[in-house]
């Protein structure tokens, strides 16, 4: 998915750069002051096309937002996650903030999992990476709040948790994992 977005970005950027090069060349090569014919009309069409394209993107992408993922299904598993500098603790049970303890987590493919993510100190990021280190899902871990992230893992394997919000001098080593069978 990320690679498709990179391709989209590179294609759009290429088109933009090409348009500006052509505009520049038209200035170098033109007879004095020919100018653009009907600029107002062209501007109108340009904005109209932009509105249509962005409107389409908006209405297509909003339903795919993570807040609506599996919203009408009951989760088969709930994984409680507590973050603190610089560890993630995960458990099938509620985690007591006074004595936080984690356990190894093993999930099944295609079961709906709800991660309930919070933090005991500063804001952290809860980024789920697959075994190829591709980011597949994320939410933030914020003190005083519980973010609920629902996800189904279609591929078995080892999944890593990396911190995706800068949280201090050990941010880069804050890592955990769970297995999906």
């Amino acid at each position: 998915m990320q690679q498709s977005l990179l391709s989209l970005f590179l294609i759009l950027s290429g088109i933009i750069i090409l348009v500006f090069i052509l505009v520049y060349l038209s200035s170098i090569q033109s007879q004095p002051q020919q100018g653009m014919k009907n600029p107002l009309q062209k501007r109108f069409w340009f904005i109209t096309i932009m509105v249509v394209v962005l409107g389409m993107f908006f209405f297509i992408t909003i339903p795919k937002s993570p807040y609506y993922l599996y919203a009408n299904e009951q989760p088969a598993r709930i994984v409680h996650t507590v973050s603190s500098q610089f560890v993630f603790l995960m458990s099938n049970q509620d985690i007591d903030p006074a004595q936080p303890m984690g356990e190894n987590i093993e999930l099944n493919t295609n079961e709906l999992v709800e991660f309930r993510v919070t933090s005991l100190d500063v804001t952290h990021g809860f980024g789920i990476y697959n075994d190829k280190y591709e980011l597949v899902a994320q939410t933030q871990a914020m003190p005083g709040y519980v973010n609920k992230l629902r996800w189904k893992f279609s591929e078995p394997g080892k999944y890593y948790i990396l911190c995706l919000e800068y949280c201090g001098s050990g941010h880069q080593v804050m890592k955990s994992f769970f297995n999906v069978k």
């Binding site: 505009v23 520049y24 038209s26 200035s27 033109s30 100018g35 653009m36 600029p39 501007r43």
Partner: peptide, 12 residues
């Protein structure tokens, strides 16, 4: 668009 109008086919 305004900058493009200034430049397009205008000797500047």
């Amino acid at each position: 668009f305004s900058i493009i109008v200034v430049v397009f086919r205008n000797k500047i």
